[in-house]
Write a protein that binds this DNA or RNA. Structure first.
Lengths: 342, 342
DNA sequence: AACAACTGTGCAATCGTTTGCATGAAACGA
DNA sequence: TCGTTTCATGCAAACGATTGCACAGTTGTT
């Protein structure tokens, strides 16, 4: 029926016997009020009958607004990101926007590349899940006046909106949980410090120690180069090799925790009997590991929704100002944490 | 620097002192040959200097080709789909195309809805990962002449291109593996039969039994209503309740296998000592389950790449004909399969 | 009753590219 | 040398929607 050649506003106009501009005004909610209800009625009916849908390319050309936004993520294959994307797309859909996604594999070149192809497509704004603390791309977008929201990770630059997890709370929950179990010597395996998440979680860990009255001398901190299982394994192994006597590990994320699992097994210890481990993120299936991972659940979906909502707000009310929002995480206690032996 | 107001072809033309159409021809690879090399040179230089990027909205309006394609998936949050999407986007990127993604949650209304908003955006084609065997949306798109490729699942309708896994081979590998271990009584928990994957795997199971010389009477088949853990649990429990004496379960996918794990534990048996289980898909982290899941690895990323390549081909050479392609899966042996006790 | 204000609709320009056609110049064959 | 073909480029008309302005008709004010 409806062939690929679409029905235009002109055909609707001819059908009703009015000028195309009248049809346009009827179909635009903002101007519908200016048209006689009777005519508006006829126009909407004709538009429905003919199956009219506006040509977004034409509209975008004229208005310079495509209702399309770009989303940059490191890798959709990382289970962290799909819920964020889903949240973004759901929220965008409600406002008539659409997302195009770019995977950057954490490579700066691919980031700038992706942004320029997105700009060629006249995106109205950008959601970045790839921000580094010091990120030229962020400053560039801000300088160009491109509406921008950071999600998951934030950047040090100010004047930019961001929706991130409350990492301080998350880490405090983990440390407090371990202390309640009786742990006093707790190690932290930190993420990369050039990422806001890595830095914030490490800083929060130190703050939490203080708040809980634990001695930093008993609580070593090691840093990884990436939020990966390999790095978690390598770094945990290093901690053990130093002969430290901690009884628990607060990992900066779940993958690092997985690496820690391996390191613990490698030296013949058991989790949680000998060493407790906490993760961060609550990725899918970490409840199926052995032992099931005690971790911090981040509201990823809500992070995405909120980011999209904020971006639409930035686009549609240009005077709205940048602000940083944090969402509250939740401690999920499973089998990887227990009281230390003595 | 580059403000949001973009540099147009006209500015480039003025800078060089030629007509806009000349710039257009230089920038279009197909017509560059018709321009004096010397001028072409100057134009490309000016375009670079000014940081010109074509306005895709304008181009799309004029050419009716947006180099945008739509991708419909049930839910990006299902770990099956991100690799497919990644494959699609990577392949599209190589051809200058971009994808917009729609999550449909397997709801027919959301599917048609998503397709119509995508069509409003003038997509050049569609990749469907949501096809049911009898799918009105598929027939509709074919009828409308919208270039279409099915991925992961196919439909019964012919004349439509599809890229799917070779389920017959996958199931054959699983059955053969179990028979080699000594199993003769093997159950199959099938997926929904209205999906091509559910039907093909069940049919292939019966074929494989015959090929391996196993008695169908000893090999019960039960059907689920969804590829989910809950359904796997429910259906496996039913099989056990019937008092059948099988020693292995071939699950139609990994989630169903997970459900089977639970059902096995619920009746006090162990996997693989009492019952072997095979999955299908090799989802992330099934190697971390206990026991690690023996499963069939599907080349999801390649499925996506191939689907995108095929779609671009369909779009750019309109006389190319539809064909169905299958990609070869691989048996991944882990800890959930073992020889039966006796 | 005359003029002002308002209202609803049409007119036409515009957004940035692409592309069929026209044009003038150059190249070629006879 | 003239007529014809070829070639490189300019011209202008699209593509489909939006929107400032104009205009005619109506309503309101004094």
């Amino acid at each position: 029926m409806a062939n690929r050649s679409r029905v235009t506003i002109r055909e609707v106009a001819e059908r009703v016997g009015v000028h195309p501009s009248t049809v346009s005004r009827v179909l635009n909610p903002a101007t519908r009020g200016r048209i006689t209800p009777e005519i508006a009625e006829k126009v909407t009916k004709a538009a429905n009958d003919l199956g009219y849908t506006p040509n977004q390319a034409a509209r975008g050309l004229r208005t310079n607004r495509t209702r399309t936004i770009g989303v940059l993520i490191p890798d959709i294959t990382n289970p962290l990101f799909p819920p964020i994307i889903r949240g973004i797309e759901d929220a965008l859909g409600e406002s008539g926007y659409t997302a195009i996604i770019g995977n950057t594999d954490n490579l700066a070149v691919r980031e700038t590349e992706a942004v320029s192809t997105m700009r060629a497509r006249q995106i109205d704004g950008l959601v970045l899940a790839t921000a580094r603390r010091d990120d030229p791309l962020v400053s560039q977008c801000v300088a160009d006046g491109l509406p921008l929201v950071l999600v998951n990770r934030t950047a040090d630059a100010d004047g930019v909106s961001s929706i991130v997890n409350d990492d301080a709370l998350g880490i405090a929950l983990a440390v407090s949980h371990l202390k309640d179990l009786g742990h006093t010597k707790i190690a932290h395996i930190a993420g990369p410090l050039e990422l806001s998440t890595g830095e914030a979680r490490q800083r929060s860990f130190l703050e939490a120690l203080q708040k809980e009255g634990l001695s930093p001398a008993d609580c070593p901190v090691a840093e990884t180069n990436a939020f990966s299982e390999d790095e978690g394994l390598r770094t945990a192994a290093e901690l053990f090799a130093e002969g430290l006597s901690f009884t628990a590990i607060v990992a900066a994320n779940d993958l690092i925790a997985l690496g820690a699992y391996e390191a613990i097994a490698d030296i013949g210890l058991r989790c949680p009997e000998d060493i407790s481990v906490t993760g961060f993120n609550d990725m899918p299936f970490v409840d199926r590991l052995s032992p099931p991972l005690t971790t911090i659940r981040i509201p990823h979906y809500e992070l995405g929704r909120e980011a999209a909502r904020r971006l639409v707000e930035l686009i549609e009310t240009p005077d709205s100002s940048a602000r940083a929002t944090t969402l509250r995480p939740e401690l999920i206690v499973r089998g990887s944490t227990a009281s230390p032996d003595r």
